[in-house]
Design a protein around this nucleic acid. Structure first.
Length: 766
DNA sequence: TCAACGACTTGATGGCAAATAC
DNA sequence: GTATTTGCCATCAAGTCGTTGA
């Protein structure tokens, strides 16, 4: 496990400040929800208008505090309001949403069973309300005994105590001719395209209209799926044609002079044994090979592929010397770098050819890029953090391991000569093209389509629409979970506190996981008592919770957060009579939490809060930081700052401190090892490598200051509604290329089209 | 009923080529 | 022209969440 540092991370002070600000906003938020509701009711625009801004924004501009000016704003949402951080939705009715209307409508209408479920919910709701009235406002009402095992939790059946239904929100109507016309036009265009079929016709039609000067990215077969009817639920495609996966090249034995040494003597290994040895040799410079678990796992798996003779001889990894192999691979690498232009071009050509054949699928008549058409090559498993299986052998995947998914008919991909597929399936309820079972964890791996494809894009679009729906309900949801802090039922209290953390701190849900199979990392629901410390007072603030745990990818989350008194008191109760290794929320898990969330809003799960909070923060930060009079360069600076705020919220940070500590330890190791010995050499190498890595991070920090600390790309690609960024570009005359690179533009083509081709696109509100 | 599984999204990492500096 | 830096992109591990079947 990565050792944690007692010193706060570089940008933690900043974040700490920010969270403290949030706290201020938070209380304001809930206190003023009612006033915003009243306003909207009279305005007949959006009936349900909770205070839905981010905490920070609300505090700074006072949005939703029930004073005069907001009333005016809420009554008449104008384009200009965007720059003021106005928080109402720009759209007044379904029909107002360009191109999205049919998609959204299909979803809203729902199926019969969905409706029944809602009715049932309403029944439950009534009962819940009656019960609620009787509830007393006392924290210590329920005698709380921690649950011994989470497994029993599900016995406490979820009661429906929600107060909302989808129908609560009924937007006013407004005609939208323009978009209908647009949709019509595109449909005609599409018909022309598809009538002549496939990508060829696309390029033909383009060549027929030389008037339109198109950028290279528009030259491909652009499938404007967002202007089409949605497929029935569960149907992912009607026809799917592809060439199957591309397999890793076969192993080529090393030249005769390149041999591993065992106990000082060169040994000839069988090809299979040698291949696995090369996996290790290639990683010799990597920190992994200094880890005991890695070596243990590698050696055990390596021995499995050895011949009995080899197994008899090679009994100790420490006696193996892979140096010669490692040097050879380095030399090969150098040679590759020194290749002539022509040689490089030839290789590129070959790769492009592979991409052309295997990298594309035809789905419902449209050519779509495949994300990963290569079968993962064999190698050693690189689990992160303290993964118990790191170093294990990832076996070579054969066609006999691969399941193909495609249309029925003659277009089934051919397996390589002399081989056959494990199975050929025609399952159009899934999106994958090929799948196989990976040998280390036994999990399934898939070949799927590129993010620019319809299948992925549509899902992405839906994700942001769900987050936008959450925006309309967040006020009520927050109000409800605050009320639940006082619940007599321990599971309800735990759920409400967990939800508060997920909403406020953008924590992940935290599924339970098997620590024999994966590193010991946690999320919100799986937090243990040892992961938090309560400080009655810290840094001049009351009720401070110190979080310190390893989250996804074993990245440390260390943060001091001021919380409401009631949350603090609840946490104290949750921790009573427990050991550090006990679950903090012993009566909660992600399934229960999500079941509850689903009752609050259709499609709501814990991860929607991350999308919502990230997007709303970006929108507000952009509005706050952008000065329309500045040049593009300065505007971009503002954009990156806004983006960075989001990344901070989501904890996408680089572990600078961790690296620093590693370097320190490596230095000590080097000092401890006897000079001249192999151990000393190894320690020295490790130290130099880590030092170099640290220096790189430091330089980046100095050069690019703020931005390098945070992995901006992740939030940009996964959490931020791209329409916010594009609308910002449109409004402030910043080229979209400045904000999104080629890949991102491909992925977000739907959003670019929606905003850029809409007259009111620049006033888009998340 | 619930653990296990399947399908999918999220996110870190590292290699490589294009851009930039010298 | 060469060295260095930067950004892009592929890769694959690690999550989330809904479904399944014992």
């Amino acid at each position: 496990m990565t050792e944690v540092s007692a010193v706060p991370l570089v940008n933690e002070n900043h974040r700490h400040e920010e969270f403290n600000q949030m706290d201020g906003d938070y209380s304001r938020d809930s206190a003023n929800f009612e006033s915003s509701m009243e306003i909207n009711e009279s305005s007949n625009v959006i009936k349900e208008e909770p205070n839905n801004g981010s905490f920070e924004e609300n505090m700074k501009n006072g949005a939703g505090n029930g004073h005069g000016p907001e009333k005016e704003q809420l009554k008449s949402p104008k384009k200009e309001d965007v720059s003021l951080g106005f928080i109402d939705l720009g759209y007044e009715s379904d029909d107002d949403i360009p191109w999205a209307q049919r998609l959204a409508k299909a979803k809203q209408n729902g199926s019969g069973s969905e409706k029944k479920a809602k009715d049932k919910d309403r029944e439950k709701e009534k009962n819940g309300k009656l019960k609620k009235k009787k509830k007393e406002d006392n924290d210590e009402d329920e005698e709380y005994k921690p649950e011994p095992k989470k497994k029993e939790k599900r016995k406490h059946k979820e009661e429906s105590d929600n107060d909302y239904s989808e129908d609560d929100y009924k937007p006013a109507k407004k005609k939208q001719k323009k978009d209908k016309e647009k949709t019509k036009k595109t449909e005609v265009k599409k018909e022309k395209k598809t009538s002549s079929g496939g990508s060829q016709s696309q390029s033909q039609s383009q060549s027929q209209s030389p008037k339109k000067k198109k950028k290279p990215e528009d030259e491909e077969d652009v499938w404007e799926w967002w202007k089409e009817e949605k497929k029935p639920a569960g149907v992912k495609w009607n026809t799917l044609v592809h060439k199957g996966p591309l397999f890793a090249p076969l192993y080529e034995p090393l030249p005769s002079g390149i041999r591993m040494k065992y106990d000082g003597k060169s040994v000839d290994l069988s090809p299979a044994t040698e291949e696995v040895a090369t996996f290790y040799a290639r990683m010799l410079d990597h920190e992994y090979t200094s880890k005991d678990i890695f070596n243990k796992n590698f050696f055990a798996d390596w021995r499995k592929v050895m011949t009995s003779k080899e197994r008899e001889m090679i009994t100790d990894l420490k006696k193996c010397n892979f140096e010669k192999m490692a040097v050879y691979f380095k030399e090969q690498g150098e040679k590759r770098k020194e290749m002539t232009k022509e040689e490089k071009a030839k290789i590129k050509e070959q790769k492009d050819e592979e991409q052309k054949i295997y990298g594309m699928a035809i789905i419902d008549g449209h050519r779509q890029k495949i994300a990963n058409f290569r079968i993962e090559p064999p190698g050693l498993f690189r689990g992160r953090g303290g993964h118990p299986k790191m170093g294990k052998l990832k076996k070579r995947i054969q066609p006999e391991d691969v399941i193909i998914n495609c249309s029925k008919g003659g277009d089934v991909p051919q397996p390589p000569p002399g081989h056959k597929w494990k199975e050929v399936r025609h399952d159009n309820s899934v999106t994958w093209l090929c799948s196989w079972t990976e040998s280390v964890l036994g999990s399934n791996k898939y070949i799927m389509l590129n993010p620019s494809s319809k299948i992925k894009g549509e899902k992405d679009y839906e994700k942001y629409e769900t987050a936008r729906r959450l925006k309309k309900r967040i006020g009520k949801i927050r109000e409800a979970y605050q009320e639940d802090w006082k619940s007599k039922e321990m599971r309800v209290r735990q759920r409400s506190v967990a939800l508060y953390f997920i909403d406020k701190l953008a924590l992940r849900a935290g599924n339970e996981k098997d620590t024999d199979e994966a590193a010991d990392t946690v999320g919100c629901c799986s937090l243990r008592v040892e992961h938090i410390k309560l400080h009655d007072e810290h840094d001049g603030k009351e009720y401070v919770v110190e979080f310190d745990f390893l989250g996804k990818d074993s990245i440390r989350y260390h943060n001091f957060v001021h919380v409401e008194k009631r949350v603090y008191k609840n946490l104290k109760i949750f921790m009573e009579n427990k050991n550090g290794s006990d679950d903090l929320f012993d009566r909660l898990d992600t399934a229960m939490l999500n079941e509850h969330l689903r009752q609050l809003m259709d499609g709501l799960t814990a991860k929607v809060f991350r999308t919502y909070n990230a997007s709303i923060t970006l929108q507000e930060q952009l509005a706050k930081l952008t000065n329309p009079d500045e040049n593009v360069h300065h505007k971009m600076l503002s954009y990156n700052r806004a983006n960075r705020r989001v990344a901070e919220l989501c904890n996408h940070q680089r572990a600078y401190k961790e690296k620093k500590k590693e370097v320190k330890e490596a230095k000590r190791e080097k000092k401890d090892a006897k000079s001249g010995t192999a151990a000393h050499e190894k320690a020295k190498k490790k130290y130099l490598r880590l030092k170099e890595q640290l220096e790189k991070i430091e330089t980046q920090m100095k050069d690019k200051d703020e931005n390098k600390q945070i992995a901006l790309g992740t939030s940009k690609l996964n959490y931020l509604d791209p329409r916010i960024s594009i609308a910002w570009c449109k409004k402030f005359n910043v080229p979209v290329e400045k904000v999104f690179n080629r890949t991102q533009r491909d992925k977000f083509r739907w959003a670019i089209d929606m905003i850029m081709n809409d007259e009111d696109g620049d006033s888009y509100e998340f």
